[in-house]
């Protein structure tokens, strides 16, 4: 464990909690892409199946349980509890265009052609593009609530910090996992446009609105 990975995990946890509280307190999921949240629930489910078979550490197991629990709670609130506030018209990204190629890629490019390894690889690839429906929805509505931008900032920051974690682990442990690194870099690049808007607008107290 190193400082980049710890702050990355905490940033990820913060993002998940921010979103959950935003929906719960405002009793609304307006502006939130339910499709992205379903993809994240799939990412955690396919990646954390080893919860049942391998004990790495209390931290590792607790965080996995929290991530999975919050992901499904968020999906439940979007599609069940507060479904009246779900903006399905703007959440129109075709996720099959993500899941199918990612599934094919996971079967073709992986570290080991085993069931668990392919599932893990699938979850890594899927996570790198899972935010696209959310970013697409913001581009369609042309705006995002400030709390939603804080959620996205923490979510983008988590994988950016993981990149520093991989650099750290390469130099101090000689460990590197090319699949996780390439997917993590792609994932972080997808946020760059948003990071620019967040820094130049939201941090200056303006609302995030895109030229429609």
């Amino acid at each position: 464990m190193n400082i980049f990975r710890l702050t990355g995990d905490l940033s990820h946890l913060a993002a998940i909690i921010i979103l959950l509280l935003k929906i719960w307190k405002s009793r609304s999921c307006a502006g939130i892409s339910g499709k992205s949240q379903i993809l994240f629930a799939i990412v955690f489910t396919t990646r954390y199946l080893d919860l049942l078979s391998t004990f790495i550490s209390l931290y590792n197991s607790c965080m996995k349980v929290i991530y999975i629990g919050c992901a499904y709670a968020t999906v439940y609130m979007i599609y069940m509890k507060f479904r009246a506030t779900y903006d399905g018209n703007h959440d129109s990204f075709r996720v099959e265009f993500l899941v199918v190629p990612v599934g094919g890629l996971a079967v073709l490019i992986n570290h080991d052609f085993s069931f668990m390894e392919i599932l893990w690889t699938f979850s890594i690839y899927l996570e790198s593009v899972a935010i696209l429906p959310q970013l697409f929805m913001i581009s369609k509505t042309g705006e995002a609530e400030t709390i939603t931008t804080h959620y996205l900032f923490c979510l983008g920051l988590y994988r950016a910090l993981y990149i520093f974690n991989w650099v750290w682990r390469f130099y101090f442990e000689g460990f590197f996992d090319l699949i996780a690194i390439v997917a993590g870099v792609v994932q972080t690049i997808l946020y760059c446009d948003f990071f620019y808007l967040y820094v130049t607008k939201v941090l200056k107290g303006k609302k995030l609105s895109l030229p429609a």
Binding site: T54, I56, S57, Y67, H111, D112, Y162, N165, F175, A180
Partner: peptide, 10 residues
């Protein structure tokens, strides 16, 4: 490639 990738990252 069957390196032992320890999956200790979240």
């Amino acid at each position: 490639m069957d390196e032992d990738f320890d999956k200790d990252e979240l």
